[in-house]
Nucleic acid binder design. Structure first.
Lengths: 171, 171
DNA sequence: GGAGTGGGTTCTGAAACAGAACCCGGTCGG
DNA sequence: CCGACCGGGTTCTGTTTCAGAACCCACTCC
């Protein structure tokens, strides 16, 4: 019986943080559900209609998100006792992931160029997403990231691509 | 507002950019493969060992990533003709997604607190990720985002969370 | 010419997804 | 007080996808 984890350990130990996350969010729907919730959708049927997701799947996804603290189920009325699903603080904290995904989709994803632009509310300028160093007080791109253990992240191919400067953020 | 949706349509029109992306990246492995690639892994067997992914799955994932322009398959030697997989520019541009995911995992994901910290290479300070307005020359958090059409993103529950100031970036 | 290496494919069987259809407590209109 | 309706699900079917062994093949090295 292939129970949870064998002696063997699944190869990459210590990867677990993000692996664990992807076990929750790593399917075609969970992220879209969070996105819908960020747009203000809260009720079961509205998620259904908005996403076109099958109801049983929505049930399991919502339950999983609740179990993992991304959403909460709260009653919004008694008597015909009704519930709705809201993002927790942790759920809202997924915004950067969502934004990064949306922006990547627009630039590289191939879909229609989107009908929505994300802007900085106070001034209306389209936002960018950047890595920020509080010491240097500067933004920077992926090639300036190192992982403290376990070797560099963003170590790009040395020769192959007729690739990009990338010294600053990709825009 | 739940407008009457056309019968045929896959429910949410105009969502397609991110939906399309999640059809490529929205599974438990694709993102991890990109992450491994960012760490410098390039060869089939190395992906296998590092991720603990089954070989047939790796085959299909790699093919899909190549088809969608996230990776390329290049020969790194003739004669015992051998290939490796590298990120394209589009693939490297996924870094913000990865970083956002890693950071969220560490703060809210529940896994072990990670063995790797991501730092700004030049100075070694742990990086932060922020939304950046080039006009205002400032960083800001998710509540300061608006979507230009289709209603606000980051419209949080009105009452529920004993929430966070978030006027500045999220720690 | 036998073992090894890189990069796969072909089998299995288990799990996840997708869609109708059904259910159930409540409220409303007549 | 009976039937229709609504929100929020669960149960039934398939159909894909996942996962793991095992196998394959071109090539090199010894």
């Amino acid at each position: 019986m292939p129970t949870a984890y064998d002696p063997g350990m699944p190869a990459s130990t210590s990867e677990s943080a993000i692996e664990h996350t992807l076990r929750v969010l790593g399917d075609r729907w969970s992220i879209l559900i969070v996105r819908a919730a960020l747009r203000g959708i809260r009720r079961f049927d509205d998620f259904c209609d908005d996403l076109g997701i099958a109801r049983p799947i929505l049930t399991t996804r919502l339950r999983r998100l609740v179990d993992h603290g991304v959403m909460v189920k709260v009653a919004y009325q008694e008597h015909p006792l009704r519930h709705e699903y809201r993002l927790t603080e942790a759920g809202i904290a997924l915004s950067p992931v969502l934004v990064a995904l949306v922006r990547w989709s627009e630039e590289h994803g191939g879909g229609p160029s989107s009908t929505t632009a994300l802007v900085h509310a106070p001034c209306g300028t389209e936002l960018e997403q950047a890595f920020w160093c509080r010491r240097c007080r500067t933004t920077f791109g992926p090639t300036a990231i190192r992982g403290v253990e376990r070797g560099p992240i963003g170590d790009p191919p040395e020769d192959p691509s007729p690739d990009v400067p990338l010294g600053e953020r990709p825009h």
